[in-house]
Amino acid sequence: MALIELSGIERRFLLGDTTVNALSGLDLQVDAGQYVAVMGPSGSGKSTLLNLLGLLDRPNAGSYRLEGRDVTTLSPEEQAAVRSRRIGFVFQSFHLVPRLTAAENIALPMMLAGIAPTERKQRVAQALADFGLDKRADHKPDQLSGGQRQRVAIARATIMQPALILADEPTGNLDRHTGDEVVHLLEALNGNGVTLIVVTHDPALGARAGRQLVMEDGQLKHDSAHAPG
């Protein structure tokens, strides 16, 4: 069964008098456990697509089924619950809360979900160990390197054991070496069965994915899954 089914998705933005078709007539299916790279020129709608998939945004038309359930008709509170349990985000600029330590940032989704402190502690300790952050638990984000920050962000994205991880240019703010490290971490998660969708400008990184999507003007221009030959 497909994890994600998009059909006839439209997303328009009003900019003054003109309408921007950020996404138009988009159909897409992603199976559970796939590793998908989304590429395309700037302004082609990659981030808009990711926001829709992550239930941060709603389409103007079309339907979105996640794990067989139509999620576009859910109330905001229900969508928040789906984000909490099923989806993890990794951002280009890390988005850590500056006043919280690495451990507290990782625990944040569990705290928001109302998970008991003892269980939180246990899972954070495990995550810190898994991502090689044991010695950084009590460091604030500004005391961490870029690579460490992104590792904290990935630990945070996975702490609720989501089915889907959405990463918008996760290596965009990192040098080649640390960027590769982060990619390997994400790929390891995918290896454990988590569906991974990565937006990237880097063709080499895109080529590593099992499936490549190329977008242009809000439409799918190329999908390696349906490519001729």
Partner: peptide
């Protein structure tokens, strides 16, 4: 504002 957006992305409801 950025933090509030993040909290929402991490699954915080409007009520929270």
């Amino acid at each position: 504002t950025g933090e509030i957006g993040l909290l929402k992305a991490l699954g915080a409801s409007a009520e929270t």
